[in-house]
Structures are given as C-alpha cells and as structure tokens.
C-alpha cells in the first residue's frame, strides 16, 4: 500500500539525508553551513508532511536564521575564500564511521523489532492543533515551558559573559 504521504516522506527524507551528508563532505565552510540549512528545511517539510504544520513552519523559520549565523561564524573563524577551500580536518575517522554505522543499525533494528501497536488515523487539523498546543503549554506544561524561558535567559547571559573580552589592566 503506497500512499502519497509515503512517497513524499521518502523523497524529502532522502533530501534531508543527502544534505546532511554533504555537510561533512564539502570543502567550503559556507557550503556546509547552507547544506545543513537544506537538511533542516527538509526536516521541516517532513514535519509538514506528517501534519504538524505549526512545528514545520517554526522549524523552517528558526533554522533559516540560525544557519545563516552559523555561516557567518564559520567565515569569521575559518576564512576560506569563495568555494576554494581545500581542507582535511578529520581525526579518529574509522572509529567515527564505525560508531555512526553501528548506532544507525541499532536504531533501525530497534524500530523493526518493536511492536508499535495500532497506528492512529484520526488527528486534529492545523487550526485545532494550534489551539490544543497552546492549551497544553499554558495549562498542564506551563511550568516546563517557563523553565525553557528561564533557560533561554540563562543561555543569553552565559553566552555574553563567555564572549566578553576581559581587559587585563596590569599589562599596559
């Protein structure tokens, strides 16, 4: 039984995997940042295919900003000229490949071995989803969401504190 949803899932899943693979295969820093952006956008489209419209649009929006920032930081710290960089920056390559393959095989095995029970067919529409998600956030999971807010504040303060340049007044 092949449905449109399955075909779209496979197409965009392959796109996500291909872009994700390109991240570590290109020799240009900006290209790998934008490949990661492509992978993240494909993940967002996967969310939309799986009917989680709000999360998909949010993912596409947030990653656009985040990966552009990543591109500018790559450029600042690596300084490769446009599409000319030739680098080989790997260590423990064989162990990494082994770890990646083993973990993938384990997860796929677990996915096949588990009995998933019945698959749900009824789900709320996008507008209803937005309402229910808001209710969830503002009622039952209020505390957790507030914690996320406080964590963001902590992260902002921490990153500014770490990135400040401390002038040593002794050496003048």
């Amino acid at each position: 039984m092949i449905s449109v949803q399955l075909i779209l899932l496979i197409i965009f899943g392959l796109a996500a995997i291909w872009f994700g693979w390109r991240v570590f295969m290109t020799s240009s820093m900006v290209r790998s940042a934008l490949s990661l952006l492509g992978s993240m956008v494909a993940i967002g489209i996967l969310f939309i295919i799986m009917e989680a419209e709000f999360l998909g649009v949010l993912q596409i929006m947030m990653m656009g900003t985040e990966m552009s920032i990543m591109a500018i930081f790559m450029m600042m710290y690596m300084m490769d000229p446009g599409g000319l960089g030739q680098m080989d920056m790997y260590h423990q390559k064989n162990i990494s490949i082994a770890a990646g393959v083993i973990v993938t095989v384990l997860i796929v095995g677990a996915a096949f071995a588990t009995d998933w029970g019945t698959i749900a067919t009824q789900f709320p529409g996008p507008h209803e989803q937005n309402r229910l998600l808001g209710m969830e956030i503002l009622k039952r999971s209020m505390m957790i969401f507030e914690t996320a807010g406080v964590t963001i504040l902590t992260g902002m303060i921490a990153s500014i504190a770490v990135a400040l340049s401390i002038k040593n007044s002794v050496e003048k």
Partner: peptide, 10 residues
C-alpha cells in the same frame, strides 16, 4: 536513524 548516524559521525 540515518540522520542521527551521520550527525554522530560528524
């Protein structure tokens, strides 16, 4: 799973 493996490798 495949994306996770690629990310772990990277």
């Amino acid at each position: 799973a495949v994306l996770f493996g690629i990310g772990l490798y990277g």
